[in-house]
Nucleic acid binder design. Structure first.
Length: 586
RNA sequence: GCGCUUGUAGCUCAGCCGGAUAGAGCAUCGGCCUUCUAAGCCGAGGGUCGCAGGUUCGAGCCCUGCCAAGCGCGCCA
């Protein structure tokens, strides 16, 4: 209907320009929107006010001319000029009822569209370092990324979800060393566990597995391990220097092969846990992309060579730099350190080059908001490689500040004091978790109150929507118990019996659903869907309290049942996009 | 110090890329279950949209300054 009105208005505009009433070069972008207040009709447009300025005409006068030039449409019952020059359209409610048939016909497909058809998009999200279990911060990115991917799919994009596994680099070495030290402790060696090591219980558990599987094969004398190491932080030293020395010592004493075994044990164990955790959370990927595969295949070197050939690299202070300032970055960035090691950024350049070469029309990275300073250099690298940087879109997810009631929960991966995603899921349940995470705009700070999220009371908004769905199901069960037959086509023939304002409101709500999906998808804003579902559920609850559905009058009864089953279907479709269940009973 | 983001009801947040009287949930107060599930509904109170200017028919939204908060400013990842 919205699009129909837009077309009508465009026709009116071109009529007016062809008759010379309006200047021909008039370029206006007007909007047709749903009104907030029923007094203003069903739809309103700001056309006359927008065009009035350009045409140097009084908006209300222009509005009159537009209305006069407007082609007739049976569904429009009344047109009014209001306020400073709004044109308000009143729509015949009966003409909207077709949506009930469409919902029944399309079922789960209602709300999908083809705006993204033929385009491919990759969504990379979570991509947490496999150095420990996912915590509640990762959960928000996981829920957000999953829903963004599903929304894009719903509007026709071909979507590929990807997790970038940082299975190389210093942090992974520190994990390997931490596992080994815990293993040595299990063996009975006396060692000093580094301040900067990974202290979580999961590290001990991996060490225990290692011991059970391989016995004492990797045992080395504790004294030998600790001999001559630079002091750790609590002893007045530097924790970073200390931990690096431990890593070197581990590599030395274990040798390449054994070190790799310990390293792999840590990586596989944690990555396996992450995969399982995400799967249980309803988050799935088409691809797990290994960072190490990039360096192993020489892709990183190749990417740097390409940049060099294009004149973007230079050498200074023994390091190799990328001249990103020439493309808007704050400062140039090192890609190869003076010790010959590639930086993380070098891998990232190769990774994004790889993504571009895979041919996606659009690439979406979902990052924690603390990485926002990283965007200019990645975009610069894409541009430097001759690609269009606008193909990459970086969506930021603000880390949730965790509270337990009034008290702020401090988190640190290394200290092991963090609330894991798994703990949260177990406490709150998957539905509430997923709903809660995407309820708020993702790039906004969010206070995540664990007490609230874990409450099974009506404070938890997910129940409100689910309850509306369950209520429809319950009505259908009551129908059976009364031994009444339901005739869907018969009900469709009597939709004109739906004359209550509650019914018209609900129908208008159904009409909006596809628009909401499209907007939520294209703007990557799942919270719009959440808000919509709450509104639709509310309109249903209001209707439920105001009118009886299971009435003696069969035509009216079947018409109402068709309406509420359409509502049920839309609630189901929306919840499904959020990966929240739509229960039949509660 | 510089950059990015944010500031809306007691709390948590929306506000459809400049529109009509700024909304919702929770919390508070008062009503509604012999009738399809009360995890629901109806009603009430609650606001200087951080502050001050500016742009125009019109600003919570755009511009400038100030105040406050978060994040980022490594040859870390």
């Amino acid at each position: 209907m919205k699009k129909r009105l837009e077309t009508l208005l465009h026709t009116a505009l071109s009529t007016l320009t062809s008759t010379g009433a309006l200047p021909g070069d008039l370029a206006v972008s007007f909007q047709v929107e749903h009104t907030r207040d029923a007094k203003h009709g069903d739809f309103a447009t700001n056309l006359a006010m927008v065009a009035g300025k350009a045409a140097r005409m009084n908006p209300r006068q222009l509005a009159e001319q537009v209305i006069a030039a407007l082609p007739a449409d049976g569904a429009v019952t009344k047109i009014e000029i209001a306020g400073p020059g709004f044109i308000n359209f009143f729509i015949d409610p009966q003409s909207q009822f077709d949506v009930i048939r469409r919902v029944h016909d399309l079922g789960a497909a209602f709300g999908m569209s083809g705006v993204g058809a033929g385009k491919t998009v990759q969504v990379e999200f979570v991509s947490a370092n496999p150095t420990g279990p996912l915590h509640v911060g990762h959960g928000r990115g996981a829920a957000y990324g999953q829903v963004v991917a599903k929304l894009l799919k719903a509007v026709g994009f071909e979507v590929q979800r990807e997790y970038y596994v940082n299975d190389a680099g210093r942090q992974m070495d520190i994990l390997a060393a931490s596992v080994w030290l815990r293993y040595l402790e299990e063996c009975g060696e006396h060692i000093h566990f580094p301040y900067n090591g990974y202290r979580g219980d999961y590290v001990r558990s991996i060490a225990g597995d290692l011991l059970r599987r391989y016995g004492q094969r990797y045992r080395r004398p504790g004294a030998e391990v600790m001999a001559g190491l630079p002091a750790d932080e609590p002893q007045g030293g530097d924790k970073e220097i200390h931990i690096d020395a431990i890593v070197d010592r581990a590599k030395l004493l274990l040798g390449e092969i054994d070190y790799q075994t310990v390293f792999q044990a840590g990586l596989e164990n944690i990555l396996g846990d992450i995969r399982e955790d995400l799967a249980e959370f309803g988050v799935h990927y088409e691809q797990w992309f290994s960072e190490r595969s990039l360096s192993d295949s020489g892709a990183v070197v190749k990417a740097l060579e390409k940049l060099d050939a294009l004149g973007w690299l230079y050498r200074k202070d023994g390091a190799t730099w990328f001249a990103s300032t020439r493309l808007g970055d704050e400062k140039d960035r090192v890609v190869v350190r003076d010790n010959g090691q590639m930086t993380y950024f070098a891998s990232d350049i190769a990774y994004h080059l790889n993504k571009l070469e895979r041919g996606f029309d659009r690439i979406i990275n979902i990052w924690g908001a603390d990485h926002h300073g990283y965007i200019p250099r990645v975009k610069a690298s894409i541009q430097a490689l001759g690609a269009d940087a606008s193909r990459l879109e970086v969506l930021l997810v603000q880390f949730a500040v965790l509270y337990r009631g009034e008290e702020k929960v401090q988190m640190s991966t290394r200290s092991g004091e963090f609330v894991t995603l798994r703990q949260l899921r177990n406490e709150v349940g998957r539905d509430a978790c997923r709903f809660f995470y995407v309820m708020r705009k993702s790039d906004q700070h969010m206070d995540f109150d664990l007490q609230l999220a874990t409450s099974r009371s009506n404070e938890n908004p997910v129940y409100y929507v689910q309850y509306a769905h369950a209520r429809v199901c319950s009505v259908l069960r009551q129908l059976d118990e009364k031994g009444w037959e339901r005739n869907v086509p018969f009900g469709m023939d009597h939709l004109h019996r739906l004359v209550e304002s509650h019914e018209h409101t609900l129908v208008a709500g159904l009409v909006r659903y596809p628009e909401v999906i499209e907007r939520a998808a294209l703007q990557h804003e799942p919270h719009l869907l959440v808000h919509y579902l709450r509104e639709l559920a509310q309109e249903f609850h209001v209707y439920y309290n105001a009118h009886q559905f299971l009435v003696e009058d069969a035509p009216l009864r079947d018409a109402r049942l068709n309406l509420i089953t359409a509502v049920k279907q839309v609630l189901h479709n929306g919840l499904h996009l959020l990966d929240v269940s739509a229960p039949e009973t509660m």
